[in-house]
Write a protein that binds this DNA or RNA. Sequence first.
DNA 1: ACCTGAACACCGTTCAAGT
DNA 2: ACCTGAACACCGTTCAAGT
Lengths: 221, 221
Amino acid sequence: MARQRLRQEDIVRAAIAFIDEFGVQSLSMRRLGMSLEVEAMALYNYVSGREELVSLAVDELIDDLFDDELMQEQPASWEAFLRFVANAMRDLALSHPRMFPLMITQPPEAPWLRPPLRSVRWVDYFLTTLQDYGFSDERTVDAYKAFTSFLLGHLVLEVSAMGIDIASEIDDDAGGGESEGLGDYPTLRRLQTMLADDHSDREFDDGLDDLIERIRATKDA
Amino acid sequence: MARQRLRQEDIVRAAIAFIDEFGVQSLSMRRLGMSLEVEAMALYNYVSGREELVSLAVDELIDDLFDDELMQEQPASWEAFLRFVANAMRDLALSHPRMFPLMITQPPEAPWLRPPLRSVRWVDYFLTTLQDYGFSDERTVDAYKAFTSFLLGHLVLEVSAMGIDIASEIDDDAGGGESEGLGDYPTLRRLQTMLADDHSDREFDDGLDDLIERIRATKDA
DNA sequence: ACCTGAACACCGTTCAAGT
DNA sequence: ACCTGAACACCGTTCAAGT
């Protein structure tokens, strides 16, 4: 049969593709094996089990982001750096909406690694860069905390608004069922279209501007 | 045997207790049945399946928060209201750390319901209250978006820092394994203790103060 | 009306056996 | 060294049967 040797990375990438398409709940060792034209049990030569596989999938995505986007060029300022990281992470979240909940939900390597920046390599790079731009230790840590908290809040909301059901592969009732039974909630009914208006891009940029403004204000205080 | 009749609410509360203790991944219909001294298959008379059960568990917690905390008294100002809701939600998240990821990860009733305020009743009440304090339509919606995004960011991070593994019931390697292999990351190593310092309470309060300040600044603009 | 027990089609994972 | 096939202990869910 001239079967090619499996490699852990191929398995992990297949898992990411599978989760992107069908959701984690649908990922089984047997089905993933099928997609790789191998018996499920062969996967155990490369990963210790399903749990580790999911964890590796998350790590892979985070590492990709680091390698592809960041090591390229040095940004011109710390503001540009924050914008760059924020937008790269946002692109990642929006292009893998079924993976993103796992990124923030899997336990990080250490409790002081805050999602979605969840690897020592990443966080060290982030902190070092800020320090290179003259941030003190205190301000570096403050900025890291404010930045992660901002990023997380926005991205979870954006992904959630995509209506992805991380649990099932089929949406029973897709589409924007509008004002179903909102009769008892007049305020909600009146504001509904404003709430549904999607200004994610602008909200994200404005929030980021705000954050940068606040960091700037305390940077040299 | 004088078996008591099951009720859906008892099943849902048992599911919450089970998830709190062991995590969602450990919840099975058979095990939950055992904890209620009933065969698993009896549960299907009250819930359509495991998926609905988890969804009901999330709703139950959100409803509890609404009933227990909010309907009590009218707060003295919109600032007091926001603080009240924020702290109530934070208490809920911290006392059910294994449920919280489900609250933000389950698809909401409508995509414009932003977690963790994920019920029409809740959101209508929130919006109505702000309007009672003189917020215009635009400012109400802006405040709602800023508030949910703030709350989500902070709470996800706090829960994540608790190191809860939503996937498994046993932590292989619990405890604060400190500076394992941080040799290649000097910045991280130096800032590690500052990062690990838990100032969640202060960060939350400061962030909330900030948010309220920003909302105040635009309220009558 | 509600619960049970057996059954079905799946899981994750182990392990002896093949090559 | 790596993959397979059978096996084990579990799942969620259906359904006929009991009471």
